[in-house]
Amino acid sequence: MSKLEYEFDEKSNQIISPLNNKRLTYTPEEEIRQKFICVLVNEYGYSLNQMAQELSLTNSSRGTGRARADIV
């Protein structure tokens, strides 16, 4: 199994998200999120198929009822 690498494109200021299979605008929060995904895959043995990113919690009563989870 190959190692998942954190990818950042300085020219476009974008981070590659392996879970969403798309480019996202760089933010410090997004950098931490993507590096954590790499840790889950590389150090704990999870596969990308076992994870989801920015999942909506449909039955949430928290706040406005539009809660979401960053990584599940």
Rank of each mutant, 00 (worst) to 15 (best):
M1I: 10
S2A: 06
S2G: 01
S2Y: 10
K3L: 09
L4E: 11
L4G: 04
L4D: 08
E5R: 13
E7Y: 14
E10L: 12
K11R: 09
S12N: 12
S12V: 15
S12C: 09
N13I: 15
Q14F: 15
I15Q: 05
S17L: 11
S17P: 01
S17G: 10
P18M: 12
P18G: 11
P18I: 15
L19T: 08
L19W: 11
N20E: 10
N20L: 15
N20R: 11
N21E: 12
N21T: 13
R23W: 15
T25C: 14
T25G: 14
T25E: 15
T27M: 01
T27Q: 02
T27Y: 03
T27E: 01
E29G: 03
E29H: 13
E30N: 02
E30M: 06
E30A: 05
I32L: 09
I32K: 08
R33C: 03
Q34L: 10
F36A: 06
I37A: 01
C38G: 04
L40R: 07
L40Q: 07
V41S: 00
N42G: 06
E43P: 04
Y44T: 01
Y44G: 00
Y44H: 04
G45I: 08
Y46S: 03
N49G: 11
M51Q: 04
M51H: 03
A52G: 05
A52F: 06
A52Y: 04
Q53D: 03
Q53S: 06
Q53F: 12
E54K: 03
S56K: 07
S56M: 11
L57F: 09
L57V: 13
L57N: 01
S60T: 13
S60L: 05
S60V: 10
T64D: 12
T64M: 09
G65K: 02
A67V: 02
R68W: 08
R68Q: 03
D70S: 00
I71Y: 02
I71P: 01
V72E: 03
V72I: 14
